[in-house]
């Protein structure tokens, strides 16, 4: 397979050695939105860069913005023009690999899936973590939703300083 010009170095390919993808790996897969995009509208980030047989993101999307197609091992392709950032794909993904991020001035927001107890509550001060589980900054929980259709995957929205928007993926367990 030809290497794409922005293919990450071996040292940056951490998915199969550290367990989580590096930013370089995700950028090479084209799933990291730019600061401009994040400031313009909330951006779905599908951090699914390995071919596995799975397509609930595609079937969950009412806008037809996520395409896996056939075979179902294709990586999902997102059409940002169609995406309304409704967030239905977040609890639909069995891999918990979908988050929605946005920027507003010096604050960033992330909507992410949550399957641990206790479930945080609105207003909680929390520690945001990166993909390796390292704490990166403080954050505040803005909302928590867990309707029946989520099938016990809560969706948490938290706010934190804008400079950490690329690194933050979740929060530390309470």
């Amino acid at each position: 397979m030809p290497m794409s010009p922005d293919a990450p170095d071996a040292s940056d390919r951490t998915l199969k050695t550290l367990g989580a993808p590096s930013l370089a790996e995700l950028r090479a897969a084209g799933v990291v939105p730019s600061r401009e995009e994040l400031a313009a509208h909330p951006c779905v980030c599908v951090e699914c860069i390995e071919e596995i047989p799975c397509n609930p993101c595609e079937t969950s999307c009412p806008q037809g913005a996520l395409t896996v197609g056939q075979p179902i091992t294709n990586l999902p392709v997102l059409d940002r023009q169609k995406c309304t950032a409704c967030g239905l794909c977040i609890p639909a993904c069995p891999g918990l690999a979908v988050v929605i991020k946005s920027l507003e001035g010096d604050r960033a927001k992330i909507r992410f899936p949550w399957e641990y107890l206790p479930v945080p509550a609105k207003g909680d001060r929390v520690e945001m973590v990166d993909r390796l589980g390292n704490p990166v900054c403080g954050g505040t929980v803005v909302s928590v939703i867990n309707p029946a259709r989520n099938n016990r995957t809560a969706v948490v929205t938290a706010e934190f300083p804008a400079e950490y928007v690329d690194d933050v993926i979740s929060m530390r367990r309470l």
């Binding site: 998915l15 550290l18 989580a20 951090e47 699914c48 918990l96 990166d130 589980g133």
Partner: peptide, 12 residues
């Protein structure tokens, strides 16, 4: 699967 390792890794 990378998505499984990633969710465990992000839990620290």
């Amino acid at each position: 699967y990378g998505v499984h390792t990633a969710k465990v890794r992000r839990a620290g």
